[in-house]
Design a protein around this nucleic acid. Structure first.
Length: 241
DNA sequence: TGCCAGGTTATCT
DNA sequence: AGATAACATGGC
């Protein structure tokens, strides 16, 4: 067990904001499966208590080297972003494993956060997320993933390589942008989905095809646009509910 | 019951 | 290029 001192960090925001799904609540904290590890994390004020992984991994995974307040300062100021930051500015974009991240977001089309999470846990229990156990489409379908089963089979075939991502069935602009942002460290990436589309239309007066939106957002928010995306996504979603 | 859910693809014009 | 339906499943 290790206790790390953290600043401007919130574990709940970080895990519940929709970037990562392989966790369950346990003992006042979270049981987390990431990068092939199985560990526990809990927060008490400025302490992050980890059990089952070394400190170096935790610092990397939770991106404790990031400074959200410094990022905000690099962005054009506006009231929406300020509110979103106030509500969710203590989340960190986790450094995810590309394969695990790809699998998770292949489950996301026309789904929702609770279901993605449920599907992913079922998938891990059934296959260990090993590609060789993801080649039987009918078996995957029985886990409740629906039409996304064929996406997983394709992913098992092609893998999650940065250059070959787009060859995976089920990987379009949005899923690709998510993997680039959450696993490959492309922090300027701004994935466009139903929620960020609404944010850009209603809060920023932008209405154009997704391709143009993602470029505009990347340009507008700058090199840390991915963080702006996550703050806005989490905040706007909460507001709308 | 009927609609919608962190999209992508095939199939039109 | 831009619009539209289909894709499985579950929750409300």
């Amino acid at each position: 067990m290790r206790r790390l001192t953290v600043r401007h960090f919130d574990l709940d925001q970080t895990l519940c904001c929709g970037q990562f799904f392989d966790w369950t609540s346990e003992d006042g904290g979270y049981r987390i499966h990431a990068s092939g590890r199985d560990f526990h994390a809990a927060q008490q004020g400025d302490s992050l208590i980890i059990e089952g992984v070394d400190e170096a991994f935790a610092r990397g995974f939770f991106a404790l080297d990031h400074d959200p307040e410094a990022m905000l300062k690099t962005m054009p100021r506006d009231p929406s972003l300020e509110k979103a930051f106030k509500a969710f500015g203590r989340l960190r974009l986790l450094r995810q494993d590309p394969w695990e991240c790809l699998v998770a977001f292949l489950l996301s089309p026309v789904s929702n956060q609770p279901r993605i999470q449920r599907n992913l846990l079922a998938l891990r229990h059934a296959t260990g997320l090993e590609p060789e156990n993801m080649r039987d489409e009918a078996r995957l379908r029985r886990l409740g993933v629906g039409f996304r089963a064929s996406f997983l089979v394709s992913a098992a075939d092609v893998g999650a390589g940065k250059e070959t991502l787009r060859r995976v069935r089920g990987v379009g602009d949005k899923v690709s942008d998510c993997v680039m942002l959450f696993a490959y460290g492309d922090y300027g990436s701004f994935p466009i989905d139903v929620w960020t589309r609404r944010v850009l239309r209603r809060l920023y007066g932008r209405q154009s095809p997704d391709k143009a939106l993602r470029l505009w957002a990347r340009e507008h928010f700058g090199p840390w646009a991915g963080y702006a995306q996550q703050w806005l996504y989490a905040w706007f979603r909460q507001e709308e509910r």
